[in-house]
Amino acid sequence: MSQFRAKTLDIGGYVNKWIIRDHTKRKVVAEYETERQSLRYIIRNTSLPQRMRAQAQLQLSQMHCYTRPTQVKNRCIMGGKGRGVLSDFRMGRFQFRMNALAGNIPGVKKASW
């Protein structure tokens, strides 16, 4: 969302709207992590009053979706693709293949066994 997005571009490399969005989400998640964790703690702590826990539940559900760690997705650093990304290389499968064949990834060779 625009209220979280940096005013100027603050990432390098391949950039498209998905990459920017994911980058923003990562920053927001990192920023609100303690708050989320403390609310989660209150909710799960059975020794606290029920009212407090219910309020914490409400607060947690009302937090912005960008603060949720599940919103973060690994994307291809070469083309911004969101599916078929090899986490070992942070690249989409086709980009991985092209780079591996070009010899840009150390140690990766065509296998035959």
Binding site: L86, R93, F94, F96, A100, V108
Partner: peptide, 22 residues
């Protein structure tokens, strides 16, 4: 470590390629 990826950038799952790193 081995990785198997389709040769093309779109569909054609039947033609794949293997890569490995030792």
């Amino acid at each position: 470590e081995r990785w198997t990826v389709p040769r093309g950038n779109f569909i054609h799952k039947k033609s794949q390629e293997n890569f490995e790193r030792k």
